[in-house]
Design a binder for these strands. Structure first.
Lengths: 217, 217, 217, 217
DNA sequence: CATGAATGAGGCTTCATTCAT
DNA sequence: TATGAATGAAGCCTCATTCAT
């Protein structure tokens, strides 16, 4: 099922084939369990060529992360139109996000699970991606609050926390959706929008909620 | 750094030491990257003893998962008082959850990331844990709705979806809180409570949110 | 299925239990694949006791060989009555031999296969057994020839070769009979007696056979 | 002592070197006691190369058995000329057989002792070899009987039994000859030929032999 | 540009054997 | 007499990585 064995391709193309194979193997088997043999075979090239182009397993994995992170951010960016209202932008962003993760499940596994599961060279790569998305969501939430004329009373901390929670939920849902049969990206996005927008409180007459005081030790 | 090298301990004690070491190593390095050598050394015993008591790397990992899953469920149960109002129960549960995950970060990594990242013997172990917690949350949400006299109109599906999303967000936040300096369990719990209770929608005049129609392809 | 676990038995009895277990395990699994753990467990004692009584795996194996070799020789001796004609003695010996090997298949495996398969400490033990039996057969053949008044013309070398061939065939047949369902010791002995007595030549008018001259190199 | 260390040989050649080494080590030490390290060292290569070419200890052993079984059958076939009388064919076959086993003692040990001593993957391999030889001998015996005009009265069963016994004796003798100083293949073949042709009965007036009735228990 | 040949290092697992009680 | 606790050593196997062509 690997790439058709064609000889003498330009380097850029060969590299992409290798990355395709690597993402698939890394996503399905995990970083440590993936073997360079398997990747080379799936890519339809010999192992020394993989080393010639991509140096080492670590570099290869890093290249995968970078390529897929870039692609994911680009997909989300492409889905959002700048001038629209905040909730519409959030919806569009989520839809683009879940569409991309559903379309590239191995890539999402690599980014969400494998890269974070293994030590420092890789976790940092994903942090950039995540930071960018959290930042985008933070701005949307702030904008939404502004549009709703709630500007005076929204502490920056709380916005950041909400954004973090929303992104965390989205990440979780993306993995869950990929692992579950018959869930579309639209459905996943709608679930999260409902959760975020309506909340549980709205079920209960909107009365605000405050934590009880910490009990004495 | 490892356990003090004491000779001739009863089997039960040694087993716990081994599990302690294993959780730490598995949590920090991942299942595949963890070596039985390292675990044995950290536990202060020789490798054959680890095999004598715990059979194989796979069995050792499973034992870790089971022990930590049991401990986590027990901690959450212990934090919740049955008769109180639903929102208070949810708060108490979340607080206990985040307190436990913050106090046992390696254990949480093992449960949340490592066990899920590697195939079927392990994922199933965690599913039981997760199912139990989702169930608990589902009942709380239903109870909350009942308390708020919203009983007629809450489809079971929606409650289940909300519970899923809430648990997913909690899982993500636990990992995030462990990875972030200076975040207390109370803060993490409060963030999630706010997100879940107030929702984003309450920021915006409470108007319900509906997805736009899918654009033509 | 191991020996019933009874405490405080006299040493001699315990030792026999251990040897019983060892013969069974060595016979079924082979010397190298047999583990002292398995033997101790089957014998119903702890491993250190095995070492206390029998020193080492090598010594244990040697003890097995010696015990079984002695028993086999004794069985054959007991089956033969001194004064009878040579052919009757041979028959009785073979019958006793095949009866014993059929009744103690693991012991026969240990003697015939395992002991010879592994290096020098063990092969020597079995050689004594074999030498004794070959010698017995040699004398019988010589006696038979004498009874038949063929004394002048039977070179010692040829007698020895015939004895060797007969014993070899018997060893082979014992293993084959144990591995084959529904073959009795009598049948096995009869097969060999027929082969030895009648020979193939008797099928062909008894004309003697002589090797062709070696072809020039 | 090992093969001369020549680098970069074509795969087929290296594989034969490895099999040579494996047959020697397996034959001298036994399957379980042989270590892949020793085999690799004797072959003059690193262990991973052995695994790359031959997969596993089990596969390596099987490859040895197959190669040596094939070679032995080929040697016997080459020694026999089809048109000659049956006794001459049998003699030629035995001579070729004992010549080959004497020339390749380790190979014979592998086939006769090691392969049979260890369980099912291997025993089956040798059974094919044995079956082929038994078949060949069976036909020769039948042909000999026919040449001697004994066609009416030779039950198939008896022919088969005689062939079994003859082959068993040959196998035993081959091992014995290899273990005994100064015995040539010609001598071994002659011993067996005499035993088979003349029989012991011819020493004793040719009177047929019948077992005494079983004694009452 | 591309690869067949080759390996050092390390991981999982098991075993014979001993000590301290 | 008897054993639960413990380990040094070794074996099978795999992998990332490099040469020489």
């Amino acid at each position: 099922m690997g790439a058709v064995k064609t000889k003498r391709m330009p380097r850029a193309v060969r590299e992409q084939q290798m990355l395709d194979a690597a993402v698939q193997i890394f996503g399905q088997r995990g970083y440590m369990a993936a073997s360079m043999d398997d990747i080379a075979e799936l890519a339809g090239v010999s192992k020394p060529l993989v080393y010639l182009y991509l140096n080492s397993k670590e570099d290869l994995f890093t290249a995968c992360i970078r390529r897929e992170a870039t692609a994911l951010v680009a997909a989300v960016r492409a889905g959002v139109v700048a001038g629209l209202p905040a909730d519409r932008q959030l919806w569009d962003g989520l839809l683009a996000f879940f569409t991309h993760t559903a379309g590239h499940p191995d890539a999402w596994t690599v980014l969400h699970r494998q890269a974070r599961t293994h030590g420092e060279p890789f976790a940092a790569e994903v942090s950039a991606l995540r930071a960018e998305i959290v930042d985008f969501v933070t701005q949307l939430i702030a904008a939404a609050a502004r549009e709703a004329h709630r500007d005076p009373d929204l502490p920056e901390d709380e916005v950041a926390g909400l954004a973090e929670a929303l992104v965390g939920a989205a990440e979780s849902l993306a993995a869950w959706a990929n692992a579950t049969e018959g869930v579309t990206a639209r459905q996943t996005a709608a679930t999260l929008m409902n959760f975020a927008w309506a909340g549980l409180g709205s079920l209960m007459e909107g009365r605000p909620w405050t934590p009880p005081p910490a009990s004495a030790p």
